Computed example of a mutant assay.
Amino acid sequence: MKRTKTKVLAAVAVGALTVSSLGACAYNETLGRNQLLIVDDASLIQQADVAWAEALRTQPISRDAALNQRVRRIGDRIVQAAGLTNRSWDYAVFVSDSPNAFVLPSGKIGVTTGLLALVRNDDQLAAVLGHEVGHVVGRHAAERYSSTALTSVGLQIAQGASGDYGQAVGSIGGLAAQYGVLLPYSRRDELEADRLGVDYLAAAGFRPTEAVALWRLMAAQRQAAAPEFASTHPSDATRIAELERYIASRGW
């Protein structure tokens, strides 16, 4: 998760990934669309785990037992609702005033103390964690890496990342700068993760409407935002409108 929400941070550290067969197209039933996936999942997960271990070693981590237990408790409920209990999940609270969150494709979720100070209830935190889990279900990291590799942009694009995305990554120590490629999710990815996140938080017994309340909070605390056409993320107004539409369509 990152400028777009507390995701507000989406940092994916994927170094030296092994490319399998070029042009591999896979149908993602959850998303209802085909995805171009040429990245070796084992390599993706291995590099993500390396980045996670290094972040835990080098970045300030909150030792507040209550904060960590809260994130784990809610995260585990979301993971169960998403049907992803077949993998090992880990959570960490990074000490940073910037309200952000991120997920690595190996099932590692980081949130900042700034985010936990911003959300007003467990439902809003569940919306954040649901969004992050949605990125994993959507295989967005692998898809972004694959599309970047095929268009031969790669590290140059990553190193050229600017604005609040780069600042958000900096708030947790620049995982991608140390371990590979920084790949911001697309607007489509973000909106897909929003919808999946709402599904998971509802299935886990949280209030879906609090996802909208969360984004209103995020919009209010942001002093400035790049215009949507200049950003890889949807504007707050677009995100809120899409969430409201989707929640209404589900009768929530």
Rank of each mutant, 00 (worst) to 15 (best):
R57V: 00
R57F: 04
Q59M: 14
Q59E: 13
A65V: 15
A66Q: 15
L67H: 08
V71S: 02
R72N: 10
I74V: 11
I74H: 03
I74Y: 02
D76I: 01
I78A: 08
V79W: 08
Q80Y: 10
Q80E: 14
A82P: 02
L84R: 13
T85Q: 15
T85E: 14
T85C: 12
T85W: 08
N86C: 05
N86D: 15
A92M: 11
F94N: 00
V95Q: 06
D97Q: 14
S98K: 12
P99G: 00
P99K: 00
A101E: 03
A101D: 03
F102L: 09
F102Q: 03
L104M: 12
P105I: 01
V111Y: 08
V111C: 03
T113I: 02
G114F: 01
L115M: 01
L116M: 13
A117F: 00
L118T: 09
V119K: 01
N121Y: 08
D123I: 06
D123T: 10
Q124Y: 07
L125D: 06
A126R: 05
A126S: 08
E132F: 11
V133S: 06
V133D: 04
G134Q: 00
H135A: 04
V136S: 07
H140I: 09
Y145D: 07
S146Q: 06
S147D: 11
A149C: 05
L150F: 14
T151E: 11
L155V: 13
Q156T: 12
Q156G: 09
A158V: 01
G160E: 05
S162G: 04
D164I: 01
Y165A: 03
Q167P: 00
Q167G: 01
A168V: 07
A168P: 02
A168G: 12
V169C: 09
G170A: 13
G170W: 01
I172T: 12
G174P: 02
A176L: 08
A176D: 15
A177F: 02
A177G: 01
A177Q: 07
L183N: 11
S186D: 11
R188L: 10
D189V: 02
E190G: 07
L191W: 10
L191V: 13
A193E: 01
D194Q: 04
L196T: 04
G197R: 02
D199K: 09
